[in-house]
Design a protein around this nucleic acid. Structure first.
Lengths: 241, 241
DNA sequence: GGAAGTTGTCTATTATCATAGACAACTTGA
DNA sequence: TCAAGTTGTCTATGATAATAGACAACTTCC
């Protein structure tokens, strides 16, 4: 009967994404009641069971809540994340009325690829400290980051970060009182298995991939990082001054 | 045997996304040979047939090309898209050595939601012109846009755009010689069926959703739009000055 | 109380996904 | 030429996705 586009994405998942999109762009406001399962099934031209599976997936992720006999209700909101010259995770999250947190996952040594060397103003193959971390707002993971610093300049960066769990505090430990974002590159991708697990994100969900470099007040590169943000939880704001 | 995470995304699709990610971030350079199907199957822990399906999907989208007896080769590249105060699609694409094109899809009338009214400095319910368009680099669709303008100030915007197929030229028609981007909000989502078709994108692929407003030299709002960029074809650059 | 509308649960059937193995067709390099 | 390594094609089987129908359990409102 149906044509079956065979996109590699299950029908229930497409319905779930459609509803989530509706929540994200405000067609379904927070607290509001969704259309009934039968009505959703009709609009997407799928079986009611397929809709139920979609809703179950959204419910598991905490986006909706089903009430038997009554209906299914929305509960969600996206975090506004301005991209400014002064970018501090804790300030941005705090300003939104949430409690910023940092989690240290792992640190190790690495050598600079050509790209990282260029960003940090080092030579290819220079020794680096690599730090893996997660940042959260309240208890919700917002992004995972892989951060690189020069191992010569910041020899104990790994253990320092593990203790302070904040990039600002890490730099302060090395007497760097101020820094700013010099460049930011943004694209989107599907979360890989590791990132998905760390972000508590379903497989196949999109992430915003941000490559950024921070410099000190003399424009000297300090750290470069690649962060993956859960797209369903944030919205970047670019303000042209 | 396998655990089956049941993410709603087929295994072959996950493999395809993984390989695409590898192409996007440079692990597999353009023109280079991918690992053999057996090796890919081992790294992803799936059957070779599953890998073949993933490669077939990538081949259909033109990202790779299989050569019997020899191997499978990469062919792709992402468009760098700087987000500056002065943002002109044709200039950005032209600077990358590609030929910019615009396609008019549809125009109609609309009334301002609270959000659009705020962006354009109008009252909620004010009459608007809504324009749907696609922009391409060479023959590849880059983004689809929904653009809103005040119907009072730009009464014939729809038919003018249909003729000139460029926002800069449309504004020039109303004696606006210069304008600039005042705000940009970025997030990511999965392309819906309509956008996917217009972008020639497989279902379930991510898009970068950009909400932007352009203002004249006196900071008066001119147009506001929501664009959906094929994430696999562009990379946004934010330059903090 | 009762009707209408909602979500929850069960059984059953068909199509697609994923695996498995074997071998053909072709390219490359020794 | 030949061996090794590659992609292409075939058959087969079990697991999962999607459909279909029926009815229970519960809420809301008249």
């Amino acid at each position: 009967m149906s044509m079956q586009e065979s996109s590699g994405v299950a029908l229930w998942r497409q319905v779930a994404d459609g509803i989530e999109r509706g929540i994200a762009d405000g067609r379904f406001a927070a607290g509001e009641k969704l259309p009934g399962e039968v009505e959703i099934a009709e609009t997407y031209r799928v079986n009611r069971h397929t809709v139920r599976r979609a809703l179950a997936a959204l419910a598991e992720r905490g986006l909706v809540r089903a009430e038997r006999g009554s209906g299914t209700y929305v509960e969600a909101q996206r975090l506004a994340y301005p991209l400014r010259s002064r970018t501090r995770f804790s300030e941005i999250v705090g300003a939104g009325g949430h409690e910023p947190r940092g989690q240290f996952i792992d640190a190790g040594e690495d050598v600079a690829t050509r790209e990282i060397a260029r960003e940090l103003g080092l030579k290819t193959g220079a020794p680096l400290i690599r730090i893996e971390s997660v940042r959260l707002a309240d208890r919700t993971p917002i992004c995972v980051s892989t951060t690189w610093l020069s191992a010569e300049r910041f020899p104990d960066a790994g253990s320092v970060f593990a203790a302070v769990r904040s990039m600002t505090k890490l730099l302060a430990h090395y007497d760097i009182k101020d820094y700013r974002r010099s460049s930011t590159r943004i694209t989107a991708a599907i979360a890989d298995a590791t990132d998905a697990a760390r972000l508590d994100l379903a497989l196949g969900r999109p992430v915003l991939v941000v490559d950024a470099t921070d410099v000190d007040i003399a424009d000297k590169p300090l750290v470069t990082k690649r962060s993956r943000f859960a797209a369903e939880r944030v919205e970047f704001l670019v303000e042209n001054t």
